[in-house]
């Protein structure tokens, strides 16, 4: 790897390059724009990026695409498999299609945008990431969510926000069932302002006033035997 290639923009063809070769190129680049073609549902594409590069993936990806992303902007023009942008720290990861289970899982920061639907456990154990989903999210989304924001323009599946800590959940459509210790909360001006901003950043056209806010009732914060059924 020469320094000259580090800032080159280029097309990386996964039908010709190994995953290691493609990721090495992306991880070494400190700037620039790359396009990955023929992803073929392969796993761990564009994971572990540290620098503000721009990556567009033309097609569907497998597990852990853009995992642990820092600073980079990654766009998947297709669907993403399990664990999209898991443990993301910063930067933006966008999917034009659907995302499978555990999208944005344990993410600490940055923005994850899913233009289609996300399936089960979207935002599980999230720790500060902002996730915007254009469609629906599956069951147990924001399970044990600690911090950050999950914004859902469609509907939420069962047990939304189960065992939630301090993350904020905004849902425009219906919620099949709230999880244990997750309750609807008052939508205050600062929440509307936040929604207006994040919807704009996510490129989503929606009116903040159509959303409802959910968060922790904080009854599980200190173990009480009368809550035993909830543990």
């Amino acid at each position: 790897m020469t320094t000259a290639t580090m800032t080159n923009t280029g097309v990386l063809d996964l039908s010709a390059l190994s995953l290691r070769e493609a990721n090495e190129t992306l991880q070494a680049a400190t700037e620039g724009a790359f396009t990955i073609v023929n992803p073929g549902g392969r796993h761990a594409i564009a994971c572990g990026l540290e620098h503000p590069v721009s990556v567009t993936i033309e097609g569907h990806t497998g597990y852990y695409c853009a995992g642990m992303n820092k600073n980079a902007d990654v766009t998947i023009r297709g669907n993403a498999g399990t664990g999209l942008a898991e443990n993301i720290m910063s930067g933006t990861v966008r999917v034009t299609g659907d995302a499978s289970q555990a999208a944005g899982a344990t993410g600490h920061g940055g923005l994850v945008v899913i233009e289609g639907n996300a399936s089960a456990r979207c935002g599980i154990s999230m720790k500060g990431v902002d996730i915007v989903v254009g469609g629906n999210v599956g069951h147990m989304s924001a399970f044990m969510a600690q911090a950050g924001n999950l914004v859902v323009l469609g509907d939420a599946g069962e047990d939304l926000g189960d065992s939630i800590y301090e993350a904020r959940l905004f849902v425009r459509g219906t919620v099949a069932r709230l999880g244990t210790d997750c309750v609807e909360k008052e939508m205050r001006p600062e929440h509307l302002a936040f929604l207006a901003d994040i919807l704009k950043r996510a490129g989503m056209d929606a009116d903040p006033r159509d959303f409802r806010r959910y968060g922790s009732a904080r009854t599980l914060y200190h173990f009480k035997i009368d809550n035993a059924g909830a543990y």
Binding site: Y64, Q101, T106, H108, M144, E166, L220, H222, F223
Partner: peptide, 17 residues
């Protein structure tokens, strides 16, 4: 990334596999 002083509960399964 937890509120100070709460009883922390950790998962038994990994979140993404």
């Amino acid at each position: 990334t937890l509120p100070e002083g709460i009883d922390q509960r950790s998962a038994c399964r990994h979140p993404d596999w």
